[in-house]
Design a binder for these strands. Structure first.
Lengths: 246, 246
DNA sequence: TCGCCTGTGTGCAGAAGTGGACAGAAGACC
DNA sequence: GGTCTTCTGTCCACTTCTGCACACAGGCGA
């Protein structure tokens, strides 16, 4: 297991804490290497931990539709943020399920210990409040995006965000999984992906999509990631580098 | 102007505060009667006030799409909640625009005064945290709803929630406004509404929709309002009576 | 090498939703 | 009453998206 002190800089929320706050949290942080599909929190269960994705790891919030279909991904959190009890401060059943999407290291802290630290440090509390606001902004924008934008736009946005998050043009994901995330039918995603491939924007293999023409994709996608990034910049003064936001 | 002490019980968040916290806030609350379209917060401006809708008043968060079309309503807050700085605690530019939808009285407090009160009272802070969690749940569910459900379902849901909020079967709203809220084309809303009227579910007049068959509408709408209400019940122990949530 | 899963591509019928154009109806105002 | 403006309904051509059925391809283990 990696020492948590090695990882703490790989999460941007933790990495930008003032030294006292960072030390305050460091002794409670536990590092865990997680695989795609691992559960971070389960809908209905009380939130126990806050998870900080490090490096290229990320986790997604998923909300089930009542019709029994696949849950839709309503937000994806990478090294710019944290998952679990951020807004509620715990003590509350989780509304959405959160599971790991991109594998890697996460730092985990018990919600009570994070709470204690926030009681001790007003700066920490404010910093996490600012992040909460960004998280909500992300949800607001995604909601509007889902109401307004075509699947092609959302798909292109998602591909760009994902690739930007990992820093590589390769995305390991079946079209079926992609369809589930977007909340649409598999065959239609195949068609959208096929059209993008025909235009030379991407290449595809079994369980894999490779971005070939980032600019071309950007023309086809909506601006939702960008406006969210602007809000992050405004609120967290540039915590974001070139990291994709879904 | 109504005295704020007369109104404080008409907002469920304030009404259920313990007496000390209620008094703590009461002296800073200002009552304002607001009209549809009045601005509560403007996207990009720093959040100055928290607004508590009273009675049947409500306000909606709206997010603009980059295409210059009408902003979509991503959440609607009535007497069960509050608008402005709830998650962020202020000090941050508002992401969404919020404007009054149903007219009526609102209680308003400066964000710094609410902050001071939260510094003094841990119970108040926790209570508002719990509400924040519910607000986020609402956003998560709406996001999934927008991704998955048909316009007919969302329209039926919206009509039921609105009517339930005001307690009357009449909804004063043009089809154009309704279309803008749902983020879809006006002519299609006319068709959806026309189909509902043909089935005897609603009656329509110029700028007005009247619910005739609530049960029939419920069959046509998704469960999103209901699952949100369940989360409110679980988290805020039944703050909700039969109040619609959008 | 063979079968067996799983993932991908395609065809098709049809439903859902868009957006422009235009006519008529309901109120509002003079 | 007449004249506006605004709201509603309808027509139409078109795109987007769904869901099923089925063929085929890739990779894995026996």
């Amino acid at each position: 297991m990696a020492a948590s002190s090695d990882l703490i800089g790989d999460n941007l929320l933790l990495g930008r804490l003032v030294p006292e706050d960072r030390q305050r949290l460091a002794r409670h942080l536990v590092a865990r290497q997680m695989q795609p599909g691992d559960t971070l929190q389960k809908s209905g269960d009380d939130v126990q931990h806050t998870w900080f994705p490090c490096g290229a790891a990320c986790g997604g919030f998923r909300v089930a539709a009542e019709d029994g279909g696949n849950p839709v991904e309503v937000a994806c959190i990478g090294r710019e943020g944290a998952i679990g009890g951020i807004v509620s401060n715990g003590r509350v059943p989780a509304y959405a399920t959160a599971e790991v999407r991109a594998p890697g290291w996460f730092l985990m802290i018990r919600i009570e210990q994070l709470e204690d630290a926030k009681m001790e440090s007003l700066a920490l509390r404010h910093w996490l409040s600012r992040y909460s606001d960004c998280l909500v902004a992300q949800l607001l924008q995604n909601s509007a995006c889902n109401a307004r934008h075509t699947i092609t736009q959302r798909c292109a946005r998602w591909l760009l965000a994902e690739s930007s998050r990992t820093g590589a043009p390769d995305i390991a994901m079946t079209q079926e999984q992609l369809a589930a995330i977007l909340g649409v039918g598999r065959t239609f995603v195949t068609r959208v992906v096929g059209a993008m491939r025909a235009e030379g924007l991407i290449a595809t293999q079994r369980g894999r999509i490779v971005l070939r023409d980032t600019e071309g994709l950007q023309k086809r996608c909506c601006d939702c990631s960008e406006v969210i990034a602007q809000h992050y910049d405004a609120v967290m003064s540039g915590i974001y580098g070139p990291v994709g936001k879904t």
